[in-house]
């Protein structure tokens, strides 16, 4: 308890060591974290959260670095949460996103934290939202969450941030790729990075074409309120287009704050509901399979050549206290 009050006090006083340690608590599922989050929760909700996602090598880290620079030029503060993959075999990870941002290390208006995704598979780490909450309570104006390099269908970032930027680069597929369902649909802003390379113009045209053919995400809001994601060209390497990107993010923010589609508070609450459901699901899974002997039950039932579905019904029946469904 003493620890808890001390660290919260230090966080509020602007101590970056306390900020770092609280994020570690969240990551390591330290038993003190939930109470600490309770203490700081009244200060959560002021920062604008930006997600940067896209395939490996599209330039997410370089772009994040550029974005940090653009934000600092406006004298706003910014925290970065950079997620990299963990090994499915050893659990180890090589977190290398900082290399692109090293000149920001000494800037007091910037905080950068690398995080391994550990057991998650949706492009973020389990503790991503918690880390954002801590950064938010610390008082940063903006938070950037950079996902692991994603394929076509990792959407966790959607639930964790206010504005999703999907980063693509030329040379990674034809126009049909742009029409596929999945990643492109979650974008609030589409960013074509490496715009100095051949094929960038073509990709921008393909994306704009694909967007014209798409039904809005919320058909009820089609018309006045709906916003088609803008396509922004950047070259993080040449430091080009970064202000345009920031402007596109701000424009999305204003759009949400005007509440034309849906109330911002309601949108954020929807994301919190999803977070609660996720936490409940995780805890249930842990409780269910940790020590209660269900695994042994499953093993012995399967031995009697009962199908996995029948076994599942049996387990659910005993957990929920209802009799198994009869087909």
């Amino acid at each position: 308890m003493q620890d808890l009050l001390e660290i919260v006090e230090r966080l509020f006083a602007g101590d970056r060591g306390a900020l770092a340690r609280l994020i570690s608590w969240a990551e390591n599922r330290d038993s003190r974290f939930p109470a600490a989050l309770g203490q700081i929760y009244p200060r959560v909700g002021r920062a604008w959260r930006i997600g940067i996602t896209g395939p490996p090598g599209a330039g997410k880290s370089s772009l994040t670095n550029g974005l940090v620079q653009a934000v600092r030029a406006r004298d706003e503060t910014i925290a970065v949460l950079a997620i990299d993959p963990s090994s499915p075999f050893t659990g180890g990870a090589l977190l290398g996103d900082r290399i692109r941002m090293e000149e920001r290390t000494q800037d007091k208006g910037v905080y950068i934290r690398s995080m391994a995704q550990r057991e998650s598979h949706g492009g973020l780490a389990r503790a991503s939202s918690d880390a954002c909450d801590v950064m938010d309570a610390f008082g940063f104006d903006r938070i950037v969450v950079e996902t692991v390099g994603v394929g076509q269908a990792e959407y966790d970032v959607m639930g964790a941030v206010d504005t999703v930027v999907v980063v693509l680069c030329p040379g990674a597929g034809d126009g049909i790729q742009a029409m596929k369902a999945g990643l492109l649909e979650v974008a609030d802003v589409l960013c074509v990075n490496k715009s100095d390379l051949d094929g960038a113009d073509r990709l921008i045209l393909d994306l704009e074409d694909a967007l014209r053919l798409r039904r809005p995400r919320d058909p009820a809001a089609a018309g006045a309120g709906a916003m088609t994601p803008p396509v922004v060209a950047t070259s993080a390497h040449e430091a080009e287009g970064l202000d345009d990107l920031l402007e596109a993010i701000d424009s999305h923010r204003r759009h949400l704050e005007r509440g034309e589609v849906e109330d911002l508070e309601k949108i954020r609450r929807g994301k919190r509901i999803a977070q609660v459901r996720r936490v409940v699901g995780e805890r249930l899974e842990e409780e269910l399979w940790s020590s209660s002997g269900h695994t042994a039950t499953v093993d012995s039932l399967l031995e009697k050549s009962i199908t996995p579905y029948d076994v599942a019904e049996e387990i659910l029946g005993s957990v929920l206290g209802v009799s198994p469904k009869t087909p």
């Binding site: 060591g17 963990s86 977190l95 290398g96 900082r98 290399i99 090293e102 000494q106």
Partner: peptide
């Protein structure tokens, strides 16, 4: 979990990174 910071770090940068990354 290894945070690789690359080349040409000053002692200040290394310590500051250690702090931010806990």
């Amino acid at each position: 979990e290894v945070i690789y910071t690359g080349l040409h770090q000053t002692p200040e940068m290394i310590a500051e990174t250690a702090l931010q990354e806990d």
